[in-house]
Write a protein that binds this DNA or RNA. Structure first.
Lengths: 339, 339
DNA sequence: TTGTATGCGTTATCAT
DNA sequence: ATGATAACGCATACAA
């Protein structure tokens, strides 16, 4: 009774299809892969596939061909709207190209990042897209890798928004909107990553416009309350010394606006606020606040392009995509839009 | 020159490790899988693994063992904060158990849902967790499946919040907070899914509390403006006929609150608003609005448990987890919390 | 306890 | 153009 009956309930294989169709294994493979096969054979194979409800086994394919059509995406989480958006659009880009996506949430944790890279490589992914923070992340040479927002060395292309220009744009906007004295509030990783160029861009913009500014720079883990203390210290007789504030992210801007209201400041009448990222809540058309908008769709597309481009002659070390300004009601608008 | 030299730059295999360590292939396999092996052998194998930087090939493992330690998650997108949260926590749960997660964003599209199910099965996933809308979704018997928010038949367990109780709770809260005449606003899928029980629960709650209510029910694709029209029609002399509104989601509540303010109604002084889901923006502690909170972490954990539980004697057809009330400032609070 | 050999489902290289 | 056969890397039943 051994070996005589077809194995129990497991999925049909090419061999089953071949037997059913009365053809050889190789012929089935060709039909499945769209290679030229005599019409009469093709029909019989296709019927057998239909009848047995056959599906290819990607694992066998991957083992054989060394291509898995799978990409791993490493991001801290999906709760942050920017990461969520990135994940969504990268997923779409990959999907369009018939690639699957392993989602790896790292919680900003270096060891999880490393763990996931290892997992991805064991899983024979065709590539990794990573928004990571581990400065010593080890990536085996032969796994294509595209970094987001942080340069990871000359052999790994990095994709980011033009954060410097974004900072400049924020300063220019505030100047255009009539601000005389502004502040820059920043909290984030102390790593040397792309978003940290927002500060330099903003300073540059302020200087070129003759805008006077103060900065408050915090690092991850610091308490937001320090911003409140900072702002309070610039209030005299109920009046804030700043008429414009640039926050390094929309998330921060969201909190700062709350603080300002608690401190009796009206936004945007007393003080205008610009954030960064271009977050919209609940898929509405409106931005959470006036903001420097990152081109998320383009960023996603570019990451995927760079990763899957086989015949890339030279991998560019850093590509910065242009940002734009979005009015979210926390700035004064001198002229109504007409479109 | 053929077959004599080790193949180029490709990753080392168990065979390479075995040769390096001077042991047999099987021994390496045992070491890798933690099976008992003589200490001297183990050391040599471990050293060889270290030296060659060997990593197992999950695809070969999966092909052989028929287990891929991979689960597919089907959700419409990651932009909606509820889906984003679900994705994150399911990812965490899976990760804890050494499972990988394929993220599949379906855009509420039936054919994409079906396409992804097929892909997942070809990819030999160990199971699928799906928040789907296709009423005719075909899932091959032997792929474990756990549904979220929608019953898909007796053989497929469904996990959801206790939406009925949530609706009741909303009605009771509004009654407790002094409302006399309330409204229920709903927009969403017309499918017979779990969230649609919020309506029945709310009605039940209103009736049991003697609360008079009106409803406005829209379907996906309808314009939110109809809600504005509806609300306007209940305004006389600047006064809204309702002093409480239950919105079927926080997303809707968010929009409705905006509408109410435009209509000159103060929230919560004139009209109190309760949403559903328990969304917080930017990972802050505060809810977007007063809300019926879904236990996302527990939902995620339960989905994974149900899916991976091998020796499940009986798959329960529907498990509803308890919801809770969260104050988000769009309701009046009679008494300060003391905790 | 360790080594050997077979097969997982597929692709690709051969003869036919 | 089609059919047989050998890998791909690993796990495992079996032999030593």
């Amino acid at each position: 009774m051994r070996g005589t009956m077809k194995k129990g309930n497991s999925a049909p294989t090419m061999k089953d299809v071949a037997r059913e169709a009365g053809v050889a294994l190789g012929t089935v493979s060709k039909v499945v892969n769209g290679l030229p096969v005599g019409d009469s054979y093709r029909i019989r194979v296709e019927n057998a596939i239909e009848k047995l409800n056959y599906q290819v086994n990607s694992y066998a394919q991957g083992l054989k061909s060394n291509r898995t059509y799978t990409v791993a995406l490493l991001i801290p989480n999906t709760q942050d709207p920017f990461f969520a958006s990135l994940a969504y659009h990268i997923n779409r880009s990959l999907s369009k190209r018939k690639y699957r996506m392993l989602l790896c949430c790292t919680d900003y944790d270096s060891s999880q990042e490393q763990e996931y890279v290892k997992m991805a490589q064991q899983n024979k992914v065709d590539g990794i897209i990573g928004l990571t923070y581990n400065p010593n992340l080890v990536v085996v040479e032969d796994t294509p890798f595209v970094a987001i927002d942080r340069s990871m060395g000359p052999k790994i292309p990095c994709v980011a928004s033009d954060n410097f220009a974004g900072g400049q744009l924020a300063a220019e906007k505030l100047a255009d909107l009539g601000c005389k004295k502004v502040a820059f509030l920043r909290i984030g990783s102390s790593l040397n990553n792309e978003p940290n160029k927002r500060k330099a861009g903003f300073e540059n913009g302020c200087l070129s416009r003759g805008l006077s500014y103060k900065m408050k720079i915090l690092n991850d883990g610091d308490s937001y309350e320090e911003f409140e203390t900072f702002l309070s210290s610039y209030i005299q007789d109920g009046k804030l010394a700043f008429d414009g504030i640039f926050c390094v992210t929309d998330s921060l801007a969201y909190c700062v606006i709350e603080m300002l209201r608690k401190l009796g400041q009206r936004v945007p009448e007393d003080v205008q606020v610009i954030g960064f990222d271009g977050i919209r809540h609940f898929g509405s058309m409106d931005y959470v606040c006036s903001t420097i908008v990152q081109p998320v769709v383009d960023l996603a597309e570019l990451c995927v392009d760079l990763l899957l481009q086989e015949n890339m002659l030279v991998k560019p070390p850093l590509i910065c995509l242009p940002v734009s300004y979005g009015n979210g009601g926390t700035t004064l608008e001198p002229d109504k839009k007409t479109d």
